[in-house]
Amino acid sequence: MSKALEVSGLKKSFGGVAAVRGIDFHADAGEAVALIGSNGAGKTTCFNLINGQLTPDGGRVSLFGLDITGRSPELLFRSGVARTFQITATFASMSVRENVQMALMSRHREVAGFFSLATSRHTVAANELLADVGLSEQASRPCAALAYGDLKRLELAVALANEPRLLLMDEPTAGMSPEERNALMRLALRVCRERKLALLFTEHDMDVVFTHADRIIVMNRGRLIAQGSPSEVRANEEVRAVYLGSLHV
């Protein structure tokens, strides 16, 4: 069976800055893979290349064997890719529930609709998703009034609305307390296992990474320097060197 996500030789530079310099990795269905690396290592750029926000200079991305390199985000959404953003991106003029409804309407191809009220679409499904991420209480609040951690949760709910086969999460737990982090990651992992989706996430909190990831990929200055199980990565000399003392393992 082909891999859920397969990346090979992926490259991108911005003017003179080579942000991603040819990397290869994969993720399987039902597997949680962490992408780590210091600031500016190229993680977000990688995500942007996979979900079509950016067009790669070279290399190939495939989803369940299908070449999706350079496809637009809209098309990738239709093929089951969902993502959350490092800098949270939500629809500030809508309520929390409406944010999820928006994604559901898009998934059901209803956005050209002229003859119904948007707020009445998919309310049940939206409420379920919000309950999953623990936002039921906040469902009717303006999304702009949410705390940072709650926004991250909302992003997850919006991503899950697409019933994705590949979920990309860029620093999903930034700005949360340790308990919240673990709760969110447990939720993400549960979905990952239950729905057999491939989960690729970046994270700066090493506790989170080493507790939840099945596999870890380490990037440094646009290159992949190590990958493997948490214990393998922990033992890797180069990773230790790059992370210096910061990796207390």
Binding site: Q53, E74, F77, A82, F91, M102, S106, R107, V158, A161
Partner: peptide
Amino acid sequence: DSTVKALAIG
């Protein structure tokens, strides 16, 4: 509100 997000949800 957010073009990147809108694109990302298709």
